[in-house]
Simulated assay, not measured.
Amino acid sequence: MLPSSKMFTKIVFVLTCCLALASVDSTPLQDFCVADPNSKVAVNGLACKDSKLVVADEFHLTGLHLTGNTSNPYGFKATPVTLAQLPGLNTLGVSMVRLDFAPWGLNPPHTHPRASEILTVLEGTLEVGFITSNPENQLFKKVLNKGDVFVFPMGLIHFQRNVGYGNAVAVGALNSESPGVITIAKSVFGSNPSIPSDVLAKAFQVDQDVIFQLLAKF
């Protein structure tokens, strides 16, 4: 008994799939995906460099023991270790950052759109906090000392401030090789092109002269 045309179509489809699977390269998956600096694709990572061209230096970075330069208006310096600095992090879902604070230095309110962060204080005393989303906008705040740990959930606005009289150092670990950072004041008042001043004035419920002063700073 000959199969119906519908059944015949199904048989041809199954056989085609089997032949396609048989022809697939059975080479094992790579253990890593070092970022190709020439990649045109960047979706929280870059395309993989040819593994035959990878060298050990692409998994290595030095200098994190060096104190960051905090001679700026914030008294703060972040030294990141992300995909941009360490190509071997590509697709691994981890990164870190060294944070240096002068006395009363501030890491201003910001967010990481693609990562949560866990912070450990190595030296000094930091006041840290994050704010929950609308409508509660609750502030969770804590003063941390050497050896203390604090977590900032993904995407929430958070900050760190040195409340001691000496320098402070902390290390943050993030669960993305490219966590991103959006500094609130810089993003709002330093966008390119600028957000219309009347929009900002209405949003912040202040006179436009105040907005013009803030725009001039960024």
Rank of each mutant, 00 (worst) to 15 (best):
G124V: 08
K6D: 15
L46R: 15
G68S: 05
G75L: 10
M1Q: 07
T27K: 11
W104E: 14
F59L: 05
F76P: 10
F212K: 15
G190R: 01
C48W: 12
A20N: 11
V12M: 12
S187I: 02
V97H: 01
D209F: 10
K141T: 09
A201W: 07
V171R: 08
L92M: 14
V55C: 10
L61Y: 10
S5A: 09
S194L: 12
L214G: 11
L64D: 01
S197R: 14
G124L: 02
A35G: 09
A203V: 14
G93K: 02
V181L: 03
A22W: 10
L106T: 11
D57M: 08
N162D: 05
G105T: 06
G93A: 08
S187P: 04
F152Q: 09
A56H: 06
V210L: 12
I11P: 07
T62Y: 09
A173E: 02
V12P: 03
P196G: 03
N145W: 00
S176E: 02
M96E: 01
L21G: 13
V171K: 04
K77W: 04
V97A: 14
V210T: 15
N107R: 11
G190K: 05
G147I: 02
P80M: 05
Q208S: 15
T82L: 08
P179H: 08
G45L: 00
I11A: 13
L144Q: 01
K142N: 10
D25M: 10
F76W: 07
Y165Q: 13
T91E: 11
L66E: 14
P37E: 09
L66H: 12
T27I: 04
S176W: 01
G166Y: 02
H60Q: 06
V41E: 04
Q85E: 15
K77D: 04
T16D: 08
A22G: 15
E177I: 03
F101M: 04
S23F: 11
V97F: 04
L2Q: 13
V43W: 06
K142A: 13
P109W: 08
L19T: 02
M154F: 03
K40F: 04
N134R: 12
P103W: 11
Q205A: 09
T125K: 14
M96A: 13
D57C: 03
L89W: 01
A56L: 11
M96L: 15
F59Q: 11
H65L: 11
S4V: 06
L156D: 08
M7Q: 05
F32P: 04
E177S: 02
L83R: 11
S39N: 00
N175D: 13
C48I: 13
S5F: 09
L174I: 03
S39H: 06
A35V: 08
N38T: 04
V199S: 09
T111K: 03
T9F: 10
F59K: 10
L53P: 06
G88I: 10
